[in-house]
């Protein structure tokens, strides 16, 4: 039967309440926002937290707003708001694309951006996009707020830079310069529809089409979502045509600890990573012009 192990349920009204409960229960507590990764895991009893801290009742954690040169998104913003946001679509269409294809309608209605990042599923869509968009992640604990760069946030499979007594409160995207394009493309696992491998890319072009900045993140292929540094280096300073992008994308699987399971071998994941990277970068370049 799919019934979670017994747990205590704590709906909270403020971030401080949540933090204080996290301090008290530490590893025996989990934050509940959308719950669409957590609850299935609890029903299978793979996860058995003694305490669930429901943060959906906290006012002011769900928003998408422009703050100067940054777009700030509250951690408890559901995907459906992300995909409906014209502001995000205008600046970061990769976010919209990822949210449109993520899970299914129920997951999109309930799941949250912050929850996805805190969960750090190595095949998750949002971690890859957030990495490629070089976001800053704001977390809050008993000692107050701190900002973690996306590059430092995703540590390992289901492991982030969050301390046991910290909660993710906001994701901040620096509004990129003009002529910046983003894209997210994944090759789906036909069962879960997660990325067997997926690539999020952000490229900035100058007026003659030369790439001045590139960030490329790979998900699904490895034990954590990772920046493809070599690919990025091979793009910067070059004009992004089919040939240069294809050549750069060849490096997309380098340095990755490739995953192998019934859905894909290492060899297939490696090669598909190259293909997805090429397709995502080309699409991002198209969006940039």
């Amino acid at each position: 039967m799919s019934i979670p192990a017994p747990f205590d349920y704590h709906p909270v009204k403020t971030v401080d309440e949540a933090i204080s409960l996290l301090q008290e229960y530490s590893d025996d507590a989990k934050i509940l926002a959308g719950g669409h990764s957590l609850i299935p895991s609890m029903k299978l009893r793979l996860s058995q937290p003694g305490h669930l801290i429901d943060i959906r009742g906290i006012d002011g954690l769900s928003y998408i707003r422009e703050e100067g040169d940054v777009i700030a998104v509250g951690a408890v913003t559901p995907y459906i708001q992300v995909l409906r946001s014209d502001l995000l679509k205008h600046h970061f269409v990769a976010l919209t694309e990822a949210a449109e294809d993520l899970g299914d309608q129920q997951v999109r209605n309930r799941g949250t951006l912050g929850g996805s990042l805190a969960h750090s599923d190595p095949a998750g869509d949002m971690p890859a996009v957030v990495l490629a968009l070089k976001a800053d992640i704001v977390v809050q604990g008993p000692k107050g707020k701190r900002t973690v760069q996306a590059d430092d946030f995703f540590v390992d499979t289901f492991l982030t830079a969050l301390e046991p007594d910290e909660i993710l409160t906001e994701i901040r995207f620096k509004i990129p310069p003009a002529r910046t394009g983003t894209a997210y493309i994944k090759l789906e696992n036909k069962a879960s529809h997660y990325a067997l491998t997926g690539c999020a890319a952000m490229v900035t072009l100058d007026t003659d089409g030369t790439c001045t900045a590139a960030s490329v993140a790979i998900t699904g292929a490895s034990t954590k979502t990772t920046r493809a540094g070599t690919v990025e280096a091979e793009l910067v300073g070059k004009k992004l045509d089919e040939a240069t992008v294809a050549a750069a994308a060849q490096h997309a699987a380098e340095g990755l600890e490739l995953v192998e399971d019934i859905h894909g071998s290492k060899a297939y994941r490696a090669q598909m990573t190259v293909v997805m990277a090429r397709r995502a970068i080309l699409q991002a370049a198209e969006h940039a012009s």
């Binding site: 299978l44 696992n189 036909k190 069962a191 879960s192 997660y194 019934i262 859905h263």
Partner: peptide
């Protein structure tokens, strides 16, 4: 196209949820 129940060599069911059984 997609479906298939799979077991490991020692008889563990590898397709025990829809995360792994492709509907």
């Amino acid at each position: 196209m997609w479906e298939g129940v799979e077991y490991s060599e020692d008889g563990q069911l590898l397709t025990s949820t829809f995360m792994d059984y492709a509907m």
